[in-house]
């Protein structure tokens, strides 16, 4: 019984939040890794792209709420998501036409593109703050829990409850669907294959008649989808605050690099590695260990390896360890 209670506490406080956070990071990292693979630069504006997409989705969510539209138990934000994606796609295609295209034609060094993306980051950050302000916003509605802690306790008779929030369930479900669609697209469709060819060897791809502008456009469209979905899921799970989204840049990049930059499979693995490490290292294990260890060994302190404020340090430490021992990441990524 004690073992089961401990297991439930572990699932409730470590596994489920880690799984949801990992899925959010994975979708974010997929966007970063795709841009790196096709456009060959690290996009520092990705966090703010996510914020922008979420902002548009929030605006439509409020609109639908005012019109009385809803999805019943599911959050209205799902209904608004396609509009958020469309808005982000317009923004990204516009940015590409106005800004990135010039440097691509100049064949500028990747590091110049990174600096350009810093400028884009400033502008997007400014736009988001200008339009929606800097305060915390929650836009989750509908049913809050799939299983609430109390219902679980009544069902099983255990002391510990297992709560699964709707947002967490949605996150994992969406992540599976998104990843499946993305891999189907990259591996089975003509456009997807041409994208992979372009990523592997640009010159050869051009020689075989692949239109680079089309590949770039499709990439931005996919990135718009991924960034908005990641941003909205994160916002539903926690809350929306522009500065937090900017700070997500570090764990997202860590995920993409740990998995191997430019490798989609790696981005997903990296997302979960980073998320679970963050959660396990900053979680106070007292409760779980109290159940699992014999009474004489039960801990007095919190058994928290690091305070939650150091979660950046965790992503960072893992990043460094992986880079030192496997410079191309867990899955073989590109190295330029």
């Amino acid at each position: 019984m004690d073992f089961l209670n401990g297991l439930v506490a572990f699932l409730n406080f470590v596994f489920v939040p880690g799984l949801a956070y990992g899925a959010q990071l994975a979708i974010g990292a997929l966007g970063v890794t795709l841009i790196y693979g096709i456009l060959r630069f690290s996009n520092f504006a990705h966090g703010d792209t996510m914020a922008f997409g979420t902002m548009v989705t929030i605006a439509f969510t409020y609109l639908f709420q005012n019109l009385g539209l809803s999805l019943g138990p599911l959050p209205t934000a799902l209904l608004a998501l396609p509009f958020g994606i469309a808005g982000t796609a317009l923004l990204l295609l516009g940015t590409d036409r106005l800004i990135y295209k010039f440097y691509r034609q100049q064949k500028a060094a990747p590091v110049i593109l990174v600096i350009v993306s810093m400028g884009v980051m400033f502008v997007m950050n400014g736009i988001v703050r200008f339009l929606i302000g800097t305060e915390d916003r929650s836009f989750l509605d509908g049913e809050r829990f799939i299983i609430s802690a109390r219902a679980f306790k009544e069902m099983t008779g255990l002391q510990e409850g297992l709560a699964i929030r709707t947002s967490q369930g949605l996150t994992v479900l969406t992540a599976v669907v998104v990843v499946a669609l993305l891999f189907w697209f990259l591996n089975k469709t003509r456009t997807g294959k041409s994208m992979r060819a372009f990523s592997d060897n640009e010159d050869l791809a051009l020689l075989s008649g692949i239109n680079p502008e089309r590949v770039v456009m499709v990439t931005w469209l996919i990135v718009a989808c991924l960034a908005t979905i990641a941003g909205v899921l994160y916002g539903l799970d926690k809350s929306f605050k522009p500065f937090t989204y900017f700070q997500l840049l570090l764990p997202i990049f860590a995920s993409a690099i740990v998995g191997g930059l430019g490798n989609p499979l790696g981005a997903i693995a990296g997302g979960f590695v980073i998320a679970f490490s963050e959660v396990t290292i900053t979680y106070a294990w007292k409760k779980v260990l109290g159940y699992w260890l014999p009474e004489s060994l039960a801990p007095d302190s919190l058994v928290q390896l690091m305070s939650t404020d150091y979660k950046f340090a965790v992503s960072f430490a893992i990043l460094i360890i992986v880079l030192l021992f496997r410079p191309t990441g867990l899955f073989k990524g590109q190295s330029v």
Binding site: I115, G119, M121, F122, V123, N125, G126
Partner: peptide
């Protein structure tokens, strides 16, 4: 922020 970004770009 907007101005700084535009100046940089």
């Amino acid at each position: 922020l907007l101005t700084m970004g535009v100046v940089l770009l």
